[in-house]
Amino acid sequence: MRYLSPIFIAEVICFIVAIAIIWKDKNAFGKVITCYLAIALVTEEAAAYLGIRGIHNLWLFNIYIIFEISAILYGLYHCIKKYVNPKPIFLIGLGTIILTYIFFLFTQSFSQLNTVTITVMSVIFTLFCLYYYYLLVTDENFIEIRIHPEFWWVTGVLFYYFGSTMSNLFDGLFTVKLIGFATLKYCIYIILNLILYSCWLYSFICTMKQRKLHS
């Protein structure tokens, strides 16, 4: 049962739809996000496998966040570059995250969850999402938000990383079990993941709709 968590099911659906729709995209965005979803799936299941056998699995998430940082940053870069040249701010953002990660490597054990980097990256991702919204609003052209893939992709990212801020900040301080083995933090992450993957799923459907419109 723990192998088939709601997060895993949402990831599988999103991954299948990603392969069917955005993998064929000419730009690298589709391939990067599909690969990231595959990595997320494998990590989720590997972590569940280790967890069931009582083996420490936090190191796995520390490796996983490297892929997470790369994929989400690339996705945001892809969305923002349509309005401005975002290279300078992305280099600053990436530099800050890398420094935080290095700081973690030197100060803490790799078997502990890298919460500092997760918190810093959440803040940076949130800022980039808000910057995207700002560019969207100030742009002189209007977009059909209802069917705009990038908008819904960024919205998913914003929900997930902004919503997880409190959990990141108070990590380890509220280990309250709600149902069986599921802690409050786990429940929050289930909700956040469901929102994230729903938005991404919708974003992929929008890509398909746009493709049909243009063909």
Binding site: L158, F162, M166
Partner: peptide, 8 residues
């Protein structure tokens, strides 16, 4: 977290 989800 609920409030943080309402903001977006």
């Amino acid at each position: 977290t609920m409030v943080f989800l309402l903001v977006p």
